[in-house]
Amino acid sequence: MSSSSALTDRRQKLHMPRNFTTVLVVCIVLLGVCAVASLVLGSRPVRFHELIDGLFHPDIDSYGANIVRKRISRTVFSLLCGAALGVSGALMQSVTRNPIADPSILGVNTGAALFVVSGIAFLNISTANQYIWLALAGAAITAIFVFGIGSMGRGGATPIKLVLAGAATSAAISSLVAAILIPRSYVMDQFRFWQVGSVGSGSWSAIATFAPFLIVGVLIAIVTAPALNALALGDDVATGLGVRTGVLRLVAALAGVILCGAATALAGPIGFVGLLSTHVMRLILGPDLRFVIPMSAIAGALILTIADVSGRLIGSPGELEVGVVTAFIGAPILIILAMRSKVRSL
């Protein structure tokens, strides 16, 4: 096959999926429905007039309207964290060429948790700004370590080796976290709520802290998407197309770590969101990351918001943390996906 025909075939493969518009419209509608549900549903349901008062009449100081106003920041925070985890999952799967790569499976969340708990125990940190930098450092170091271990030996970084390296690293780091927590009850009390993963602490200040990291990570993901498409064809082909594979992997992985680490710092280690959102979008839309990345952001926001609302309803009058709900929902879906498709390199 000539080079011109090969280039033509490649362009044809990267055209917009036929069902992209339909999927986009459906997801946006569902996103709106979930956002309204997040404002209305909970341990104390909100009536329609209270929803209107809370959204459009700031001068009205009623109990229901105040609940709506508090839930607005929580809903926005949930949507943004879900989007960040969705994009992070897409980037990690592409960089590692592993269809089941996810911040939680690769141990990145656990690495962020180790640095956060160490900061609480030894540095007396207590603010979101302090959490976020420690979590980013822990996520980055863990990602480098897991990829280094998974790349050793014959065959390089295969999907199975990366998952095993991530599982082993996560187990070891969890032991270190327990060793720090057990003799320090005051640290355990502060860390316990964060550890299970929750968007209940979402506030406008947390959103303001998180937004710059989200913007930077998403922009890098969008810019690198065409090159990551080339990387999916193999390193040799990507190099032939002019892609600097080493630099690309470093930049894309950095963006994934920024998104995952920032979300983990503020909401705790929430698993399965990045894995599920990206995997489902690949199945529906195909492999083109120019479309998978933005749709993974929307799907991640949907999954996390649905999990948050479900946790409030299931745990009423209390609340079941969103990290527990995503694990409960994600595990069986992951099993179904694994049964229907082979786990192979992307």
Rank of each mutant, 00 (worst) to 15 (best):
343 V>R: 05
261 G>Y: 00
265 A>H: 02
339 M>E: 02
157 A>Q: 05
280 V>H: 04
281 M>W: 06
201 S>H: 12
202 G>L: 08
189 D>K: 12
99 P>K: 08
196 V>K: 06
231 L>D: 02
209 T>E: 14
50 E>D: 13
175 S>N: 04
77 F>H: 02
121 A>D: 01
99 P>N: 10
193 F>L: 02
139 A>V: 00
6 A>R: 10
168 A>N: 13
32 G>C: 13
286 G>M: 09
267 A>C: 13
180 I>Q: 06
152 M>P: 00
260 C>R: 06
100 I>P: 00
282 R>Y: 01
76 V>L: 13
241 L>M: 12
148 G>D: 08
142 T>L: 05
332 P>V: 09
216 V>R: 05
185 S>Y: 03
89 G>F: 04
93 Q>K: 05
315 G>M: 06
143 A>Y: 00
111 G>P: 09
25 V>P: 04
284 I>C: 03
307 A>F: 03
203 S>Y: 00
59 D>M: 13
150 G>K: 00
135 A>S: 14
314 I>W: 03
186 Y>I: 11
328 F>V: 14
338 A>T: 13
29 V>F: 12
129 N>G: 15
122 F>A: 08
94 S>T: 05
331 A>G: 06
323 G>L: 04
97 R>T: 11
282 R>S: 09
238 A>Y: 08
1 M>F: 12
29 V>C: 07
337 L>A: 07
274 G>W: 00
193 F>I: 02
97 R>L: 14
22 T>D: 00
326 T>Y: 10
104 S>N: 12
226 P>T: 09
52 I>K: 13
343 V>L: 07
